[in-house]
Amino acid sequence: MKIIVNGQSLEVTATLLDAALGELGYGEARVATALNGEFVPAPARASTSLGNGDRLEILAPMQGG
């Protein structure tokens, strides 16, 4: 299925969020996720289903003021 990852349309085979993160190369990376604008805590990723066209935001630590 196609989902929008950080604004970019990508094809994933995983149907659960934690598996999709692995498929997309995040592995054990320290990231936070939001699906369709709603925060998904890390413990909930394994039970969060993805659907075609879903918008996934994956954010990491960055410099800030």
Partner: peptide, 21 residues
């Protein structure tokens, strides 16, 4: 102060920054 920004799967900028901080 720090922030959060998008990071692609192959990118490790955020992880490196976190280690530094």
């Amino acid at each position: 102060t720090v922030s959060l920004r998008r990071e692609s799967g192959g990118d490790q900028h955020g992880q490196a920054f976190w280690t530094l901080i």
